[in-house]
Computed example of a mutant assay.
Amino acid sequence: MHRNKQIAIILPDTLQSLGLYSLLNEYFPPVEVNLFPSFDVFCAGGNDLFDYYFVQPETFTFNTDFFLPRRSKTIILTDGIEEMRCQQSLNHLMTKASQETIIEQLQQYLVTDTPNTSSGDNNKELSSRETDVLQLIAYGITNKEIADKLNISLNTVLTHRKNITAKLGIKTVSGLTFYAIMNGIVSGEEF
């Protein structure tokens, strides 16, 4: 017997929650959607029987211990291009898109039942040294300090940064930091 998909919407924005709730119930029945205004309220319920979690990037970042093991079931609501690039290894829903586009994105996750499976190790394409450099960039360490810490030349650090930027398609330090947090390279709690 087919069971209804259990969906948790963990958003402080009431209008966004109700809009998503309405779209899910109208276009993807039968689903059981539960609304939570915060992660704390969600945790107070004490149940982890959801098939999908819809959250803001901040909620994901501040609760990586919970969401990283469930990242294939987590859909992050984004509204910016930079955020989308940072989350290539995560399921995301563009909230400022047209209703038609949002429904298509939802269908990709809910109907086809193929959540992003490449999320396991998107940073696999980075070498271990590039991952070390990315980690230090996320902590706000300067290029010179990175060179000193890793016992490599400044030119080597610059080359690693160039390669990281090329591989990930992310040019800003904030974008790289966000990527590092989302992919478990650094912990969001450390910031």
Rank of each mutant, 00 (worst) to 15 (best):
I146Q: 05
L176S: 05
T14E: 15
G80C: 09
I164M: 04
Q135P: 00
I141W: 01
A180V: 12
H160Y: 14
L134Y: 07
G140V: 04
D65A: 14
T59A: 11
P69L: 06
N91V: 03
D40K: 14
K144L: 11
I185E: 03
L136M: 15
I152G: 02
E130N: 08
T74W: 08
D79S: 14
E100C: 02
T95I: 12
K171H: 10
T64M: 12
L18G: 01
P37F: 01
P30C: 08
T131C: 09
L110V: 13
A44C: 02
D79M: 12
M1R: 10
S119C: 14
K96W: 05
L20I: 05
N151K: 12
E26D: 09
D13T: 06
R3V: 07
I141Y: 09
D65T: 13
K167C: 03
F42Q: 02
P12L: 00
Y21E: 10
I7N: 03
T114V: 12
S17N: 04
R161L: 12
N47G: 00
L20W: 04
S153K: 05
L110P: 06
I102R: 10
F50N: 08
I9P: 04
N123G: 08
D79N: 14
F60T: 06
K5W: 01
E83M: 04
Y53A: 02
V157H: 02
I102T: 09
C43K: 15
Y52E: 04
S17T: 03
F50C: 05
M182Q: 14
F28R: 01
A166L: 11
V31D: 04
D113G: 11
L24N: 02
R129A: 08
K171N: 11
L134H: 07
A8W: 07
